[in-house]
Amino acid sequence: MKAVLMKAVMVRDFGAPGLAQVEEAPVPTPGPGEVLLRVALAPVNFVDLLVIEGKYQFLPPRPFSPGKGPVGTIEAVGEGVTTLAAGDRVLAMAEQGGYAEFCLAPADQCYVLPDAVGFEAAAALSLAYDTAWFALHARGRLAEGETVLALGASGAVGDATVQLAKAAGARVLAGVSSMAKAEAALAAGADGAVDLSAPDLRASLRAQVQALNGGRGVDVIVDPLGGDVFDAAVRALDWCGRLVVVGFAAGRIAELKTNYLLVKNIEVSGLQISDYRKRRPAQVRACFDEVLALAAAGRIAPRPVAAYPLADYATAMEDLRARRAQGRVALRMGEG
């Protein structure tokens, strides 16, 4: 029998976006515990750039189709899957395969979308809001009434951090790359904005935080940037504050002298969200239950999606890297 074919971005050699080609590949068959997803939208994430370029810490064997966290409709289910059925609309936290018309995903990492949450909203939530939720609650141990500094607030994780922290009853400061981006962060719910382009950031970041927070540092910082911003931000923590490292979008992996942790009684921890999906799936499901409920109730507002056709995946990735796109970048496989 002739295989049914689909279009997919296939990585055969690691390198810059554009090296991989859109090819025809067989539509996969779901195995035990898996579902086959007809992909509507696949979010484009900074981590996808790292995977395609061979710079990520976990790299799949080649050839493979990249793309984490696609959304769409279940086409078929594998043996033993009883909680999902063909026709269900889901956010599927697949580790790869999303840049294709069909994708396999573990059934226990698929989350049925409420009627009020469309595919575009779900694509905007994917990998950003679960990362922010775990940074705030699992790693940052955020308590109601505490103050959060969301670095990179104009990015997907930063914006999600602002909104989820506000929904949890926190006071929120948004770290933005220029004050021209402050208005959007304030509209998302931030109580104030910190200019990360200010001169002498090592001193000025802390001074800005204290000026906005009654002379105090902040209780929780979520940092997807690293580099010089991390160096400055750790000094803006209050006594017993917690900083959570979620990425290095600024390009440099920062280093820290641990005596500074001791003298201020502060913590720096890291978050690799994929490990939670593998090791604590029940906690991830609780996360998505809350996030999807907040979205359905209108208490968080996922960003609009800038959707590109699959054939333009390289343009989408370069626009993401250069911060040219408006809204959350995604690839559209169909009208969904």
Rank of each mutant, 00 (worst) to 15 (best):
K2G: 12
V9K: 00
F14Y: 15
A16V: 04
G18E: 07
E24Q: 15
P28D: 12
G31D: 01
L41D: 04
L41T: 03
V47M: 13
D48L: 13
V51P: 09
V51L: 07
E53V: 12
Y56S: 10
L59S: 01
P60R: 02
P63Q: 04
S65N: 07
G67S: 01
G67C: 11
P70Y: 05
G72P: 03
G72R: 05
L84K: 06
M93K: 08
L104F: 06
G118D: 14
T131W: 08
A132N: 10
F134V: 06
L136S: 06
L136W: 02
R141L: 13
A143G: 11
E144I: 09
V148Y: 14
A150N: 12
A153D: 05
A153Y: 06
V157I: 07
D159F: 02
V172N: 03
L173N: 06
S177F: 04
A180E: 15
A180F: 05
K181C: 14
K181H: 11
A187M: 08
A188E: 00
D191C: 09
A203T: 10
L205Q: 08
L205S: 08
Q210C: 10
A211H: 14
A211W: 06
L212V: 07
N213H: 09
N213K: 07
G215I: 08
V222L: 05
V222N: 10
L225T: 08
F230Y: 02
A232G: 08
L237T: 01
W239S: 10
V246Y: 12
T258W: 07
N259E: 07
N265R: 15
I266A: 12
G270D: 13
Q272C: 10
Q283N: 05
R285N: 08
E290V: 00
A293F: 01
A293T: 14
A297Y: 05
D312L: 14
R321P: 02
Q326W: 11
R328G: 03
R328E: 04
E335P: 09
